[in-house]
Design a binder for these strands. Structure first.
Lengths: 233, 233
DNA sequence: CGAATACTTGATGAGACTCAAGCGCCGTGG
DNA sequence: CCACGGCGCTTGAGTCTCATCAAGTATTCG
């Protein structure tokens, strides 16, 4: 089952976007028809490190990534930052339970997003079963991801965190083991609860072990996925 | 708005249970009528440390705590454990996105829960707007909690983690600052990503500082909430 | 080409983990 | 009633991992 969110571009033309895949919530075997529904949204562009919305902002819209990578994060009083998640093309972020955004969202790379007005959405969901189900699936999926991240942060050494991160990135990217990281070392560190130095050192160590290769700083080749998996569990 | 889940006890009598409070998903100001709906469930009892379901079990049911405290957790290959969340009376757990439970659930204290069959729920949700909305709110609420926990685990010293934990426990319990912990030091440690020794030492240190008092091991008196808050952020 | 930025590497230290012992509470049984 | 274990918690000593501080190197961009 997939749901496509269409875009009403500024010029008034409707441009179809990539569909958003989802995990079925229940009864996964049910063969739902692949009917789409449409919401109108505004295309927006952001340069790297530009803020899309801030923690505490009224959550008027939610967003879908068209291209590039987005991070959601929170800043602590001591200036440190915890990154909650990275979002790639096709993924939805900024959908909140309450009235306000609980995190900030920022562009990791140059990126394009579509902003969908939240206003009136509740009514639409109430009347469109498919739409409601999609948002429910989205919430449950996000929850599962957050819990995986939780596990990673709570337990595990720097090496375990890094290897889990690389494997996850490897899943999202090609299956050939070449991973091009959109995010900086600082981003990785803030995602994993480490420092840039530890991230850098751990990557270097993995390369020395022959587990990965680092042709450039932002490109990682996973030479031995099994070794990475063994580290974790 | 509140939703009450009724219980069809083994003897066939329908016994009303405490209502489940929720955060409104959107349009919080809307004055919904407080109409309840009912689901039938089976009452179950568990002694401390007894497993309610295991990671990987088929998710036939979800559960609501009637009395006592429940933990959901995952075990790592090295024997360590990460506790995802604690659930108190009235709270719902074990509701999964996929076919299987992704975590184990265990009784922290002696506790009573109601198990609701998940079978057929999807259809019910599709036809009952209020029910669907409630489950959606539940998912969004859980997501928000998981993200808060994430933040805590990723950043922060042992003292920050412990103080955040105590404040959270204080919110859930009475407002008089007396907190009776249902969980062991090991539970706290596994929830915060620490060891029992560090938990114990940190609590002792907080007592020496005059921030808390420990009449018994399981009873904490919050003497200076402000000091606890200052630690965090 | 030079400067800024991002990343790597090294030295040192603090905080948390590990191992180990001791304490206190509580239920059991003499 | 008190001695005895068992268990959970506390405390101590030593170690280790990761954070911090500080250069040094590579890469990008004007």
């Amino acid at each position: 089952m997939s749901v496509s969110l269409a875009v009403a571009a500024k010029n008034g033309q409707a441009a179809p976007l990539a569909t958003v895949s989802q995990i079925p919530w229940a009864n996964p075997a049910s063969a739902e028809k692949q009917e789409g529904f449409e919401l109108s949204g505004a295309v927006m562009h952001f340069a790297p490190d530009r803020q899309i919305y801030a923690e505490g902002d009224e959550a008027r819209s939610f967003y879908k990534v068209v291209s590039g990578v987005v991070r959601t994060c929170r800043f602590l009083s001591d200036g440190r930052r915890q990154i909650d998640a990275f979002y790639m093309a096709g993924e939805v972020f900024g959908f909140e339970a309450g009235a306000d955004h609980r995190m900030s969202a920022e562009a990791v790379s140059d990126c394009t997003v579509v902003a969908y007005r939240r206003r009136g959405l509740e009514a639409m969901i109430a009347h469109d079963e498919k739409l409601g189900r999609w948002f429910f699936s989205h919430a449950m999926n996000s929850l599962a991801l957050a819990r995986e991240h939780l596990l990673l942060l709570g337990r595990g050494s720097a090496a375990q965190k890094i290897s889990a991160f690389l494997l996850e990135a490897g899943e999202r990217e090609g299956s050939d083991g070449v991973v091009d990281l959109a995010m900086s070392r600082q981003d990785i560190a803030d995602y994993l609860g480490l420092t840039i130095e530890t991230v850098s050192r751990t990557l270097s160590q993995l390369e020395r072990d022959g587990t990965i290769k680092l042709p450039t700083a932002r490109r990682v080749v996973l030479k031995d996925r099994m070794a990475l998996r063994v580290l974790n569990s």
